[in-house]
Simulated scan of single mutants.
Amino acid sequence: MKERVTLKREDQKKTLADQAYKQIEEAIVTLQLAPGSIVSETELVELIGIGRTPTREAIQRLARDRLIRVLPKRGLLVAPLDLMGQMKLLEVRRQVEGLIIRLATKRASDEHRRAFAQLDAEFREIAFANDGLGFVRCDRGFNELCITAAQNEYAEDAMRPLMGLSRRFWLFHHQQCGAALPPLALLHADTAAAMAIGDEEGGQRVFEELLENVESSARISLAMNFSAT
């Protein structure tokens, strides 16, 4: 009986840590926490309203994802925007996310395919509404579903550090440079639609178009010599 209670507490702790991670990650990705700013653990606890222990676990995960850098005796550095780093990230993302999309399209369950179909509809609504924040939230759900459906923990470990940084960079570029949302959202919709019906070739083709769109945005930012610290 005692063991069962312990397991329940551990599950609850994990759930709180997951909630803390999701809330802080969104604050970073949506630029609520400015790139290059220094925050304290106490400030994050107050921001999300979750206790210190789950918040510390979330900070460790965010550090692994390169969204936060722990500065001993100084605080927590929100990762600065790094345009050259973004280009390097895209080199890796093309290979890793391409693999995950292939695996997810092949291995998705019926439940996963229904979820991809729902994301297809949501991305199209977001494109019509030109909703930047809605897009980054929907894209997070798409990434998580792809990882779950792919059923490969090694690919997941390689993909996770790329996700938040990619979404944050796109939103920054959208807000600062006027990057067009509808074409990218529709490419995501087309990718999700292909995955919903198990079309591996179609999904890969649209994904390549999607990456070209993202890389074009990165090159434009690089050419404009944008920097934010």
Score class of each variant (00 low, 15 high):
Met1Tyr: 15
Met1Thr: 15
Glu3Arg: 15
Leu7Thr: 13
Lys8Asp: 14
Glu10Ser: 15
Lys13Gly: 08
Lys13Trp: 14
Thr15Leu: 15
Thr15Val: 12
Leu16Trp: 13
Asp18Met: 15
Tyr21Cys: 07
Ile24Trp: 14
Ile24Asn: 09
Ile24Ser: 07
Ile24Arg: 09
Ile28Gly: 15
Thr30Ser: 15
Gln32Glu: 14
Gln32Met: 13
Ala34Asn: 05
Gly36Lys: 13
Val39Arg: 09
Ser40Ala: 07
Leu44Ala: 07
Val45Ala: 03
Val45Asn: 10
Glu46Cys: 09
Ile48Cys: 06
Gly49Tyr: 02
Pro54Gly: 02
Arg66Ile: 12
Leu67Gly: 04
Ile68Trp: 13
Arg69Trp: 07
Pro72Trp: 11
Arg74Thr: 09
Gly75Trp: 09
Leu76Pro: 10
Leu76Gln: 08
Leu77Arg: 06
Val78Thr: 09
Ala79Val: 05
Pro80Val: 12
Leu81Pro: 04
Leu83Trp: 13
Gln95Lys: 05
Val96Gly: 01
Ile100Ser: 02
Ala104Thr: 00
Thr105Leu: 01
Arg107Ser: 03
Ala108Gln: 06
Ala108Ser: 06
Ser109Leu: 05
Asp110Tyr: 02
His112Trp: 06
Arg113Val: 02
Arg113Thr: 00
Arg113Tyr: 00
Ala115Pro: 00
Ala117Gly: 03
Leu119Glu: 01
Leu119Tyr: 01
Asp120Ile: 01
Asp120Glu: 09
Phe123Trp: 03
Phe123Val: 00
Glu125Gly: 08
Ile126Arg: 03
Ala127Phe: 04
Asn130Ala: 06
Asn130Tyr: 12
Val136Arg: 04
Cys138His: 00
Asp139Tyr: 09
Arg140Lys: 15
Leu145Tyr: 00
Leu145Gln: 12
Ala150Ile: 07
Ala155Lys: 10
Glu156Arg: 14
Asp157Cys: 10
Asp157Gln: 14
Met159Gly: 04
Gly164Met: 12
Gly164Trp: 10
Arg167His: 08
Arg168Thr: 10
Phe169Tyr: 14
His173Lys: 08
His173Arg: 08
His174Phe: 02
His174Leu: 08
Gln175Thr: 01
Gln176Ala: 07
Ala180Pro: 03
Pro182Thr: 03
Pro183Asn: 01
Ala193Asn: 00
Ala193Cys: 05
Met195Phe: 01
Ile197Asp: 01
Gly198Tyr: 08
Asp199Val: 00
Asp199Tyr: 03
Glu201Ser: 08
Gly202Thr: 05
Gly202Ile: 03
Glu208Tyr: 02
Glu209Asn: 09
Asn213Phe: 09
Val214Gln: 04
Ser216Pro: 02
Ile220Asp: 00
Ser221Met: 12
Ala223His: 10
Ala223Phe: 04
Met224Val: 11
